[in-house]
C-alpha cells in the first residue's frame, strides 16, 4: 500500500470522525449508562467520605474524652488541694487544741467518777456476806463484853462511891469528933528550922564526905508547946540528924 493511499484513508477517517451528522446511536441510552456508571465512583467517594467522617468522629471523640478526662483530673486535683488545705488547718487546730488542753489540764479539778457495772459472782457476794456477818457477830460479842465490863465498872464505881461515901462519913465523923484536938494542935505546935545549920550541912555534904572522926553536925528540931516544952535530938539521915 502506498503512502498516499494510507494518508487518504487517514484523512477520510479523520473527516468522518469530525462529521456532525447523527451516526444513529441512542444518546439517551448512553447518557443513562454514563449516569449509572458515574454514580458508582460517587459511592466510592461516599464511602471514603464516610470513612473520613468516622475517623474524624473517632478523633473528635478521643480529643473530647481526653479533654474531659484532663478536666476531671484537674477538678480532682483542685478538690485534693482543698482537702489537703482543710487537713492542714485541722492539724493546726488540733495542735492548738492540744496545747490548750495541756495548758488547761492543771486547772482541771473535776474528778470524773465512772460507775462501772462489774459483774460480781454470787459466790463472791456470799463470801462477802458471810465475812460481814462474822464481823458483825464478832462486833456484837465485843459489844456484849464491853457492856459486861461497863456493868462491872459501874458496879465497882458504885462500890467505890459507896466506900467514898463511907469514908466521907467517917471523915465527917472524925472531924466532928476530933475537931477540938485538931484546932488545939494547930495553935500550939510550931516548927523551927535552923536554916544556917541546914545550909552548912548541905554545902558540906556536897564538898566533902563526912567522916566518923569529924564532929557530927546535928539538926536541932525544937517543938514548942505553950503548955510544955520538949526537945528531941536525932541524927539526920545521911548527914541530916534530927
Amino acid at each position: 500500500m502506498k503512502k498516499h493511499v494510507e494518508d487518504q484513508i487517514k484523512n477520510a477517517v479523520d473527516s468522518w470522525d469530525q462529521k456532525t451528522s447523527d451516526v444513529g446511536f441512542d444518546k439517551n441510552l448512553v447518557w443513562d449508562s454514563i449516569q449509572s456508571k458515574s454514580s458508582k465512583p460517587s459511592y466510592h467517594i461516599h464511602w471514603f467520605k464516610i470513612a473520613a467522617a468516622v475517623v474524624l468522629l473517632l478523633m473528635t471523640w478521643g480529643w473530647g474524652n481526653t479533654y474531659f478526662s484532663s478536666r476531671a483530673l484537674k477538678q480532682e486535683n483542685i478538690v485534693m488541694v482543698g482537702n489537703i488545705q482543710t487537713l492542714g488547718n485541722e492539724i493546726k487546730t488540733l495542735q492548738q487544741a492540744k496545747q490548750r488542753k495541756i495548758i488547761n489540764e492543771p486547772a482541771q479539778t473535776d474528778t470524773i467518777i465512772q460507775l462501772v457495772n462489774k459483774p460480781v459472782e454470787s459466790s463472791e457476794l456470799l463470801n462477802r456476806y458471810e465475812e460481814a456477818k462474822n464481823k458483825n457477830n464478832a462486833l456484837e460479842e465485843t459489844i456484849a463484853i464491853l457492856n459486861q465490863q461497863l456493868e462491872m465498872r459501874d458496879a465497882q464505881y458504885k462500890v467505890l462511891t459507896d466506900s467514898f461515901y463511907v469514908l466521907n462519913q467517917d471523915l465527917e465523923y472524925y472531924k466532928s469528933h476530933n475537931s477540938y484536938d485538931l484546932a488545939l494542935a494547930d495553935k500550939n505546935v510550931k516548927l523551927e528550922i535552923n536554916e544556917a545549920a541546914l545550909s552548912a550541912i548541905s554545902t558540906k555534904n556536897t564538898v566533902e564526905k563526912n567522916t566518923p572522926t569529924e564532929p557530927k553536925n546535928k539538926l536541932k528540931l525544937v517543938l514548942f508547946n505553950k503548955s510544955k516544952s520538949s526537945e528531941s535530938k536525932a541524927p539526920a539521915a545521911k548527914g541530916i540528924r534530927l
Binding site: D17, Q18, K19, S21, V23, F25, K27, V30, W31, I34
Partner: peptide, 13 residues
C-alpha cells in the same frame, strides 16, 4: 456529552 458524543462515538465505533 451533547457536544462531543458523536465525535467520540465514531472513534469508539
Amino acid at each position: 456529552f451533547q457536544s462531543y458524543g458523536d465525535y467520540l462515538y465514531r472513534i469508539c465505533y
